[in-house]
């Protein structure tokens, strides 16, 4: 009998706590599949954030370290500097990485830390109940922008991939999405590249994954996927913003 589908070894056999329709589960799986394919599960140390994916340490079947809000890249730096031969990754949301953790992510990229960051951008604070994030779109409603985000009051959403791609120390920066199967396949390819570049010692790697939050967006899962495609893609264009080839 040929097994055509199953749980990746790099995921624990544990039920996710994520809301129905949330795409965190897909992204976890993509990371786990990549770890399996590269055979690095036993060589990997993951750093979990604060936010919806705070419990990521219960899901990934490798050594895990739970960091304080926004500090995952600093924690990952500490681990990688002690174990330069291991694979170290952070898994962070938009509040964690793009708000409270901007200093840590910018400087980890600037130092060209040989780590991989999976940056999940769903334009909202999920865990705390739908507050405005630095990536919340103009006009988008959140519990702390109840009239919709306005340029006058809250300014513009941060484009993290574009920003980090300007740094010399960043080796690979890509933005992907998981709103349909075709994009999920592309997302996995980007995540795999990022890990491969880390292993090859190319420098800092980050994959920004556009993700949904049906619960806090107030949409059904299907509506949420559509909302992502129609609203997030125009503001957050997909693609590779930096590759090691450009660094040379």
């Amino acid at each position: 009998m040929i097994k055509v589908a199953g749980r990746p070894e790099s995921l624990q056999s544990k039920q996710f706590h994520y809301c129905p329709g949330c795409t965190h589960g897909i992204i976890h799986r993509l990371v786990a599949e990549v770890m399996d394919e590269l055979g690095i599960r036993e060589e990997s140390i993951g750093v979990a954030p604060v936010g919806c994916s705070v419990l990521a340490y219960e899901y990934f079947n490798c050594d895990m370290h739970e960091a304080a809000h926004g500090r995952a890249p600093a924690v990952a730096t500490g681990i990688k500097r002690v174990h330069p031969d291991k694979v170290v990754f952070t898994y962070q949301g938009d509040g964690d990485l793009a708000s409270i953790g901007t200093a840590e992510i910018v400087h980890a990229a600037g130092r060209s830390e040989k780590i991989t960051t999976i940056f999940v951008n769903n334009a909202i604070y999920g865990m705390t109940g739908g507050q405005m994030a630095p990536t919340t779109l103009i006009g988008q409603k959140a519990t702390t922008s109840p009239y919709g985000r306005s340029v006058e009051a809250q300014g513009y959403p941060l484009k993290v991939s574009e920003m980090l791609a300007t740094l010399t120390g960043a080796a690979y920066i890509a933005r992907v999405s998981v709103h349909d199967p075709q994009h999920i396949r592309k997302a996995k390819a980007a995540i795999k590249k990022a890990f491969e570049y880390q292993i090859a010692g190319k420098g800092f790697t980050l994959v920004e994954v556009l993700s949904t939050c049906p619960t806090n967006w107030g949409l059904t899962p299907i509506e949420a996927l559509k909302w992502l495609e129609e609203n997030m893609l125009p503001y957050y264009p997909l693609g590779e913003y930096k590759t090691p080839e450009e660094v040379k």
Partner: peptide, 8 residues
Amino acid sequence: NMVYGAAG
């Protein structure tokens, strides 16, 4: 936090 990672 780097200390936290290294110590861990």
